[in-house]
Design a protein around this nucleic acid. Structure first.
Lengths: 245, 245
DNA sequence: CGACGCGTTGACCTCGATCAATTAGCGTGG
DNA sequence: CCACGCTAATTGATCGAGGTCAACGCGTCG
């Protein structure tokens, strides 16, 4: 099982000083295990904690008044979540485990202390946040302006890239850890229509499926139809590099 | 015309020390005026600047391959934008003026310096960012899961609240500074359908229109149909308060 | 005056939702 | 090993929200 710390994640974008590494390591206390399906955080729960997913897979979502669900984000090892606690007393979103998972919790005051002592880390966190923001705007544009096929393609590419980033071997396909209903709730579609679109992607030769596994057969075309960009991989913090003490 | 500095905005959430006020004031150099319709930033432009809108109104958006546009955010005095520069060498979105506007530009290195010297300001910025993120997730849920009526209602409420926050008098209605096409591009609808939905909201008594002015006649019902929450007004930084030096 | 942008309205069509079975997979208990 | 029950995937038939296309009114500006 893949395990990634927050330091690993930030280290992808910035080479860390020893002191910075220690500061991040200091955050990694209070681990908590969750079974598949377990709820870590419920919308409107009072909370003062942020957390990093160390292993497994989770998702965050909101529920609307009519009971429908919008999945906001899938979480993979190394991802930070619950950052809403920095601005709100109660959580703006729910978070549940999609697979057996382990998270590391830390109080927002700890985060604040680390940010105060290590400005570069604060900036790196901000930058990663900006990347997530950009990914979210892509999703916004997807929901507002693209076809069902394109949205499904985008979900597949996103999952694949995040799995790869978290260390999975995905080149020869991967086991989609989502039900079609979940794919639908992420892309604003019905489970039934998700099914049809997957079939269509398959018939067009863009993907192949066997059992629960998916292979992205024609990645280029898939990315084009989905308007897809891997935002995390484009982060460029080189302008920050000169600062290390 | 309403003018707001970045210090004014942060001051809404946190009472600032003199030193913090000075630091923020130091950022406010390099003003730039823009005529209605002027483009401040184009997607993929190389940029290293962030900016605060001091007066006027702007919007940010992305264009898809087929030429359609998704409006991401409307900007009002006091709003920070261009934060993508903290993570990317080129802008992930375009920004144009919807009304004659004035912006204050500052290089990301200046921002980094202020954040390093004033950790509380860094946290306040992060918190405001989280509020914007929450607002964006609301929009995501809106586009993915709500009806055309609800989306239009959400746009109206959002604009109204942001105008009010920036100091406009909106209690007895306000002049909608958007074309129906723009409302459509923000809500993932066609200009034609926006027109129909506005009429429908009018006929149902939720809003009233005279000339370009809009009155939100039945705010409660409007907010309920739109699933609307004013995210900025719920920000709670009281946990940060104890820290000031 | 004419061109243009925006709002408005009608006719028609399509994509994706909804409703309704049916099938496949899988863990459980006998 | 098999029957059962549950969940997810699949497929067909039909419906409707919202898109598309087209026309027209109206105000502004050159």
């Amino acid at each position: 099982m893949r395990v990634r710390s927050f330091a690993d994640r930030i280290g992808e974008f910035l080479s860390l000083t020893v002191s910075e590494q220690n500061a991040l390591a200091g955050l990694e206390g209070r681990a908590r295990s969750l079974r598949r399906g377990a709820v870590l955080l419920r919308e409107n729960d009072r909370t003062a904690d942020l957390f990093v997913l160390s292993s497994g897979m989770m998702m965050s979502y909101v529920l609307l008044h009519d009971g429908s669900r919008q999945i906001l984000r899938f979480l993979f090892p190394g991802d930070l979540a619950g950052a809403g606690a920095l601005a709100y007393a109660t959580s703006p979103e729910s978070v549940v485990a999609l697979a057996d998972s382990v998270v590391c919790l830390f109080d927002r005051a700890q985060v604040a202390a680390v940010m105060a002592r290590h400005p570069r880390l604060a900036l790196a966190m901000t930058a990663i946040d900006q990347a997530e923001r950009a990914a979210m705007t892509d999703r916004l544009a997807g929901l507002g302006r693209t076809s069902a096929q394109a949205r499904i393609a985008a979900v597949l590419l996103d999952i694949r890239d995040r799995m790869r980033r978290s260390g999975e071997e995905v080149e020869r396909g991967f086991a989609l850890p989502l039900t079609q209903e979940e794919i639908g709730d992420a892309s604003g579609l019905t489970a039934v229509h998700v099914n049809r679109m997957l079939r269509q992607l398959e018939e067009t030769g863009l993907i192949a499926r066997t059992g629960g596994r998916v292979v992205l057969s024609d990645e280029a075309r898939l990315a084009r139809t989905a308007n897809y960009v891997d935002r995390l991989s484009r982060v460029d913090l080189s302008w920050l590099a000169p600062i290390p003490a």
